[in-house]
Amino acid sequence: MTVTTPQEAPVTDVPKSSGTRLVDRVFKMRELAILVVFVVMIVVTQLGNSEFLTEQGIKDLLLNATILVLVATGQSLVVITRNVDLSVGSTLGISAFAAGTFLQGGGNPVVAVLLAILMGIGFGLLNGLLVSLGQVPALVVTLGTLYIIRGIDSIWVGSRQITAADLPDGFVDFGSGGISVVPWLALIAIAVLVATAYYLKHFGSGRELYALGSNPEAARLAGIPVRKRILAAYTFCGALAGLAGALYLARFGNVDSGTGNGYELTVVSAVVIGGVVFTGGSGSVYGAALGALLLTSINSVLPALGVSSVWVLAINGILLLLAIAVDRIVALRVASALKKRNARHG
């Protein structure tokens, strides 16, 4: 800050000041970095195996990413508020099975998808209520609901299984069809992603999610309805997990009581690799989506290069640690850059 001293010409309009560029740089840098890693990885794979980027290959890459992108988008909102939802895998599994059972009985596919979403909303509300009302950390609460929902799922499903043969043809076709290389499912995910990003940037309640993740006490003093916002974030996250369940059914056609087991860890990894900071208040859903794309692509890249898939987990872990290390370094850089600008007079 500077007191405008007379000998300096007061700078009245700074439309794009260095501060803006600095902030932009940090956010875009992260997304750019993931994109570069992604592109390099794809190019290297293509050079090593020219069969990789066939039409079907591209389609598979996108299809694989779709479901993770959806769930990661929902998870980002929760993580931005300085919370976490570990029950998304269980929610995905149970809503996929519910939609499948409904379709098995001859139900309408659109209603089936809505049913899955509603189910997700229900569990999202439950999580949101427990987290915002009880003074229990989100990690513990949603770990609880993870097991509860999985338990209900196991009791209900038992050893039953839904296969593609039980589903209407149209539904299964929808799961694998699309416009040229872009699958329908990916289009849905992109639409949800863009809408969510727009909401977060341009609507008051979206900004308030960042505010309350950044400083919960200040958010309360600013009159932000903290509980309501947290509840909404969880509900949205649940809804997307439900939708992802329905799309999972359409894509794989195969659901049992173990569907979505352990998925929450992949989702959280994608979100963190994508630059949504675990302590809340910063990050973007685009980053999370890119993180999801990167993670799922590794699954296809390694086999294409003839590397055993046992390496996938280890590589995911390395990516995660790398992302956190980069975050830390960037944060320190930015802090010192800001400090220098503080003291400078101009």
């Binding site: 008051g204 900004r207 308030e208 960042y210 400083n215 200040a218 003093l221 208040g281 910063s282």
Partner: peptide, 28 residues
């Protein structure tokens, strides 16, 4: 001070009361 460290100064000042344009969107 009760500021949001991750948000810009402008957002800090107007949090909860941002100027709006059509459809309730924030007028940045």
């Amino acid at each position: 001070p009760t500021l949001f460290p991750d948000l810009s100064i402008a957002e800090n000042i107007f949090m909860g009361r941002q100027p709006r344009r059509a459809l309730g969107r924030i007028d940045h």
